[in-house]
């Protein structure tokens, strides 16, 4: 279900990138210069990073590919039963260098995820390692499947 929405978002982002790219190609870049021949026309719209969602018995696990993001580039909130993720990486040419080829560009993730089970919001944990964000969202104890003993009467 989530993946489906992700696809729609990506399609939308791609269309937006194309539209801006065309605008730039015909009217020059935003700085007013004509884009140089042989240079990649930078898509002004950011790409959306890949997100995977897993569900296990006692928790949900959300992972997002965020290469080159620092901790302060990522914001996580849980409000109104939804996990809100927002993360942005700007496109940048390192100081003292001239760009030859730029594909990595800007990445922007802005997502609100709802869950079928009640969430134990106090115990949500997140870590960012090797450019992958991993958020563990535990289900509320009362939402976990419970073994019901059968008494013999």
């Amino acid at each position: 279900m989530y993946n489906h929405w992700n696809d729609i978002e990506r399609t939308w982002a791609a269309m937006e990138a194309l539209r801006r790219g065309m605008n730039q190609a015909f009217s020059g870049s935003e700085s007013g210069e004509t884009p140089r021949f042989g240079r990649l026309i930078q898509a002004a719209a950011a790409r959306t990073p890949a997100v995977d969602i897993f569900e296990v018995e006692d928790a949900y696990l959300v992972t997002a590919d965020l290469p080159g993001f620092k901790r302060e580039d990522v914001e996580l909130k849980f409000a109104n039963d939804q996990l809100l993720i927002s993360a942005t990486r700007a496109a940048a040419t390192p100081e003292g260098y001239q760009a030859v080829m730029e594909e990595r560009g800007a990445l922007q993730l802005s997502k609100a995820l709802g869950f079928a089970a009640k969430i134990d919001a106090e115990h949500i944990e997140a870590k960012l390692s090797d450019g992958v964000l991993e958020v563990r969202i535990p289900k509320h104890p009362e939402a976990k499947p419970r073994q019901i003993p059968i008494h013999i009467g």
Partner: peptide, 17 residues
């Protein structure tokens, strides 16, 4: 991304995870 300066080239690749 590929960048260059007078000393050489810098190649950056997104390889998460």
């Amino acid at each position: 991304d590929v960048h260059q300066n007078q000393d050489g080239y810098l190649v950056l690749a997104d390889l998460p995870g």
